[in-house]
Simulated scan of single mutants.
Amino acid sequence: MPIAREIGRRLPFRAAQELFGGNDFLNDYGQVAVDNMKAQQGGKNIFANMMAEAEKGEQLDDLDVKLEATALIVAGTDTTAISLTYLVWAVLSQSSLQKELEQEVAALPDGYRDADLERLPLLQAVIEESLRLYGAAPGMLPRAVPPGGVDLGGYYLPQATTATTQSYSLHRDPNSFPDPDEFIPARWLPSTSKDDKYRISEAAKAVFSPFGAGSRTCAGIHLAYIELRLATAEFFRRMSGVSLAPSATRECMEQENYFLIAPRGHKCEITMKR
């Protein structure tokens, strides 16, 4: 409703301006990112090539760069925070799992690096299982079939058809993930006799797609994994022994999906160890 939004953003009330002017606030943050990039001398980051193209005036202008910066800010903030929120809730819901993870990260050396975290099997398994059940953007990502159409898995899709898939259902297929609604990090661990029935198959790995797949997979996938590893390790090192608050119920954490998921209760409260 663009007319209602245009009227709402002009109302002289802060609440109305925040409600209807969200894009403006985000674009302002994007402009700050672009300005910071311009201020760097010889800096190399994700904006460098975009800025170079904009300066040529061939493909991108300043507005394009600002909008790209805004999109990257949105894509790289709530997504990781959401998955971390659900990871903490899921681990604290299983006391034995919590103790095992706390013991694993407590053994890290002082001044550890991300390479040290990559070698922790339970940490990696907890992150993968969190992304399976609580990937921040589990919905559909539509694509247009190119001119001439395409044969896909024995089905012909005419050109200009909108084709899409989504990870929510794929990640809950019992043929790929036994007991699919249960948080079972052992799926991702090396084979053990107790948990062999949950071990991830090659077919399951093929459909695991919390960051999308193919040529349009998430550009920030590696940064996201680094953030997830570091944040998880630091939380369970510094917050050993915490527990879920009574408010952190399954009902409170039920997924609410508006492209990015969020807990229905909009919170995940924990209780500090006394």
Rank of each mutant, 00 (worst) to 15 (best):
I261G: 03
G148N: 12
R143I: 07
E202I: 06
A115V: 12
T232R: 01
E18K: 14
V126Q: 03
P190Y: 10
T271I: 05
V150F: 05
A125R: 11
E68P: 00
I200H: 13
S93Y: 05
T80G: 08
E6A: 15
V105H: 01
A48C: 07
K205R: 15
N27L: 14
K56Y: 04
T232S: 12
D61A: 01
E128K: 14
F208V: 08
L67F: 03
D179S: 10
F20Y: 15
A213E: 13
V32C: 06
P158R: 01
F183D: 08
G57K: 05
E128A: 13
A144E: 15
A39M: 08
P246H: 06
E202H: 07
L170C: 07
A224T: 06
M272V: 07
K197W: 03
L157G: 02
K194I: 08
S130G: 06
G265D: 09
W188P: 06
Q59H: 15
D61E: 08
A90Y: 02
S96Y: 10
D24C: 01
Y86F: 15
L101G: 09
A71D: 14
F208S: 03
K194H: 07
A160M: 01
A204Q: 01
I46G: 00
K56R: 15
G153H: 02
V91L: 04
P180A: 04
F236R: 01
P185L: 02
A90C: 11
P174N: 04
Q17D: 03
R10F: 11
S215T: 13
A81V: 14
L92S: 02
T271K: 03
P180S: 08
M239P: 00
T77I: 10
F235I: 13
V105F: 01
T164H: 11
S193Q: 10
N23K: 14
K205S: 12
E256W: 09
A4I: 15
P210I: 10
C218H: 05
Q166T: 02
G57W: 13
A106K: 13
I82K: 10
Q103R: 12
P263I: 04
I82D: 14
A160Y: 03
E128D: 12
D151I: 05
T271S: 06
G43M: 11
L84Y: 11
S191F: 14
A206C: 01
T70R: 08
R9L: 08
G149Q: 05
D151L: 11
D195F: 15
Q94Y: 02
A15V: 15
K38L: 12
G154H: 03
I46H: 06
L97Y: 09
G30W: 13
T271L: 07
Q94G: 00
S83G: 07
